[in-house]
Design a protein around this nucleic acid. Structure first.
Lengths: 97, 97
DNA sequence: TAAATGTTTCTGTATTATTCGAAATAATAG
DNA sequence: CTATTATTTCGAATAATACAGAAACATTTA
């Protein structure tokens, strides 16, 4: 996790819709949620949702896995944990916190 | 720390220059650094630097404090810690991590 | 194959972000 | 007051992002 990669992940999480989206997936756990389910929850057009999912995937925060007609979105906990660790190292650069 | 505020902070940290900038300030500790010092370190035009500092301040991640001719930039550790906590709550929604 | 459902890509528009030179403002020193 | 240093604001060009309707594609069921 370097500065470029961390910035990319932070940027993609830094949008209200995407952050909400990601929270939904995290709450759903390792099994994630189908795109259709996300769309119903968030009430946004499918094209917009698809765009935001692509953004999250481009940062490695989400992966997809198709089962027949259903495309599951899986949150990548490792990526989030790496990001948190990166921020914590920043935070603790000088003092104990 | 709600979703909107967290997204704002994530967004502003989600830019390579700003993330580097913020890291410099964090490394410098509670006393922060003068704008002039940041400019020398980062080698970017002062107007660009000023813009990025405004972004970080708009998210509450940095505050400024003038001493004569020198404007010190102070990282707001509380803000970063709040953000980390927000992400950790996300991460730990389902499982222990 | 045809119909139904789930999802993405295409396309265009509107909005916002990024950048930086130049001019302006602020503070101090002489 | 003038000169110098530090920093910000203005302005304008370019680039990136957000959004959503419509069309296209993919998969399953009948």
């Amino acid at each position: 996790m370097n500065t470029e990669i961390a910035a990319k992940a932070l940027k993609e999480l830094g949008h209200p819709t995407r952050l909400t989206l990601f929270r939904c997936l995290v709450k759903a756990g390792h099994k994630g949620l189908p795109v259709g389910h996300l769309q119903e929850s968030l009430q946004i057009p499918n094209s917009t949702l698809s765009h935001h999912l692509s953004s999250l995937m481009s940062a490695g925060l989400v992966k997809q896995h198709r089962e027949g007609r259903v495309l599951h979105c899986i949150p990548q906990f490792d990526c989030l944990e790496g990001l948190i660790q990166f921020l914590q190292e920043e935070c603790c650069a000088e003092e104990s916190c």
